[in-house]
Design a protein around this nucleic acid. Sequence first.
DNA 1: TTACATTTGTTCGTATGTATA
DNA 2: TTATACATACGAACAAATGTA
Lengths: 249, 249
Amino acid sequence: MSNLRDLPPGGVLYKDVKRRVLQALADGEFKPGEAIPSEKKLVERFGVSIGTLRKAIDELVAENLLIRHQGRGTFVAMHRRDDHFFRFFKVAHEDGHRGYPTVQQKSFRRIKADKAACALLGLESGERVFHFTNVLSLDERPVMIDDIMLPERLFPGLTETQLRERPNTLYNFYQDAFGVNVIQTEERLRAVLATETEAGLIGVDVGAPLIRIHRVAFSFHRLPVEWRVSTLDTAHHEFIVSQMPKEDS
Amino acid sequence: MSNLRDLPPGGVLYKDVKRRVLQALADGEFKPGEAIPSEKKLVERFGVSIGTLRKAIDELVAENLLIRHQGRGTFVAMHRRDDHFFRFFKVAHEDGHRGYPTVQQKSFRRIKADKAACALLGLESGERVFHFTNVLSLDERPVMIDDIMLPERLFPGLTETQLRERPNTLYNFYQDAFGVNVIQTEERLRAVLATETEAGLIGVDVGAPLIRIHRVAFSFHRLPVEWRVSTLDTAHHEFIVSQMPKEDS
DNA sequence: TTACATTTGTTCGTATGTATA
DNA sequence: TTATACATACGAACAAATGTA
């Protein structure tokens, strides 16, 4: 009853299973919002035991790529207006209240990527990007300017109207319309003084202190998919960072 | 061979095991840096199977409270100058380099907690706190002021000398000298203009833009143990936030 | 309402592999 | 070499949630 180990090719078996599920996600075989095959079917497909499969799925659930529902199935995570949204939107009112922002689109252009954009998004010099500017408001007050760059290669044919009429969040739109999944971000924050342009857009005095946030968003395999420069007025709002153990203690 | 379920009291068994291990941590039975009993011994102690025990320990490892070493044992996490340190220190040079800061202690007092401190630290009005100010330097340049408040109740008899002569990081010192484990933080960031005092301490002009960080640090059961107000000069440094899946993808 | 099939969640236990002292 | 400890892989049995007939 002791099978010889037959399948540790490059490493361990459950990591390999995880890799293959991840590939199915990246390929679009398993689509956001839809259920992936049941554990039993995946066990047959990959030829591993239920325990090994579960260990692979466990990690993908821990990374917020899959969501399990007892009795229903396992689903590919989406960026809808629920728990997921606030994973990337970290602005709250000074009284602690966190609400959904309203978005006003100020501009939309297709331009040549500059040096910084090429470096951060991994583009060849000369490649095109879409550049658009949003002003976000909370409680009827403008609080943040978002300057967003998207590689044309990943968002072919993107139009201003599409963006303006998207039903959900931006990251959900990327997912639905272009199959681009944002699963990770890196942000760098600095304090700056408001320029005239910024002062006009969010209604503060020139020279008011603001937080400037440089964010690069990544998809699978750490592929950069968005570069965003946000400028936040913290007169009545705050930028929130929690360093938390994942679960209830 | 089918045992009747005998131990789901309030919930599930492995959560109960996790709770009991957590209690041993909070009680100081399992001490930072030391190994906890082996899986086999814990299985006997809690009367569960190895799989159930592992599931409980898995979660505590995922929460960075325990660290497993194959062949050696499972250890209580410490705040030493290693991977752990940068979980709470999020300042990097603008070129991306992350180094250890040097600390200069500017003041140390024992005072009555003000209203804000009482609210954030969960103290009765009139309780005492230790208040001290540090200036942190990176690459020989002062970049951050830390104003720190500690409840006297949790740090009885703390002295300026103890603090000044601690060998490791502050959070490691809390752990070694007072059994206070910082496992979670919450931070709120705003942009401000440098006051005269701040300008003097970190060598910037009055009115320069700075980032102000309010941080509350928590121990087990979300007990607040430290309140800290940091003021960061971002002329040549940045505050880093990563929203990451935990592991290699 | 009930019964049933499907799917994930929990618990159990065994055997073997790998790292450490 | 040997003993110990954690890591991986296997799979059985039952519990709980869900959807449907």
